[in-house]
Design a protein around this nucleic acid. Structure first.
Length: 260
DNA sequence: ATGGCTGCAGGATGCAGA
């Protein structure tokens, strides 16, 4: 089974490219982030025509996550526990029936947190801690879980072409990196890093200053796996092609194959 | 570079992104 995550940066503005990529890559399940659409504005037909079921947690103007799946949804939840006052649409998860049992897939849009001296930064760290609590519960339940998303963390210096340029950025603060390490240390596996240890792999290139042309990228989109999922990991890859297309998202898809 | 693009809401420009 092929599972992908992609921060699409506005699903309506990227519809043509998104459909083209889905036709070509044909994932069984896709996690979208930053759809920047309310549920009523989401272009359901274009994806339904490709055979996808759609589960949405949309929001007006910004944020918004979705799961597209060729497999029917057994359950869908849109709430990350821990803060009833959080109005941002950053979380959706679904449960699927697969040959080997129940598979849970979450689509995650972690807060950016910039600038670090604003209240956006503690919100980012708090969201990461809420997510760690969620992950801990799923691990304790020994579930097979795929956590795909834009984690908005530069975990290591080799995850940036030019790490010095990010030292003042929320994505590369010591507190941010520590929170991400705590998450991994709960017992999650970064699927891409499990398959590719070397530096120079990125998932985001800024629109500004020719970042793509200079390969001035960062690796911030990840698929994390619980042990039951990691045991079934076959391949992981980053599909850089989309960044060179017309009107691209600034993020590219990350894709894994699971033998489930 | 002093954020140098981009999407969105709304109907000009500000917010958000990373």
């Amino acid at each position: 089974m092929k599972i992908a995550t992609w921060n699409i940066n506005g699903v309506r503005a990227r519809l043509e490219g998104a459909v083209q990529w889905l036709r070509d890559a044909a994932p069984d399940i896709l996690c979208f982030q930053e759809i920047k659409s309310e549920d009523t504005n989401f272009p359901r037909e274009a994806f339904g025509d490709l055979g996808y079921n759609i589960a949405l947690n949309g929001q007006k103007g910004f944020n918004g996550v979705a799961i597209l799946s060729k497999v029917p949804f057994d359950e869908v939840s849109r709430t990350l526990p821990g803060d009833d006052s959080d109005s941002h649409a950053r979380f959706i998860e679904a449960v699927f029936s697969v040959r080997s049992g129940a598979l849970r897939v979450a689509s995650l849009y972690f807060p950016n947190g910039n600038p670090p001296n604003s209240d956006k930064f503690p919100y980012k760290l708090a969201w990461m801690e809420r997510f760690a609590a969620y992950a801990k519960a799923r691990l304790a339940a020994e579930e097979m879980v795929v956590m795909g998303g834009d984690y908005n963390v530069i975990a290591e210096p080799e995850d940036a072409r030019n790490p010095a340029a990010w030292v003042s950025d929320a994505l590369f603060q010591p507190e941010t990196r520590a929170a991400y390490r705590r998450l991994l240390n709960l017992g999650l596996t970064d699927a891409f890093r499990a398959c590719h240890g070397e530096p120079g792999h990125y998932t985001f290139w800024d629109y500004q200053a020719g970042a793509w042309q200079k390969n001035n990228g960062i690796l911030i989109d990840h698929i994390l796996l619980t042990p039951l999922a990691a045991d079934r990991l076959q391949t992981a890859s980053i599909d850089k092609r989309t960044r060179g297309w017309d009107k691209p998202s600034d993020h590219v898809p990350v894709v894994i194959e699971l033998d489930v």
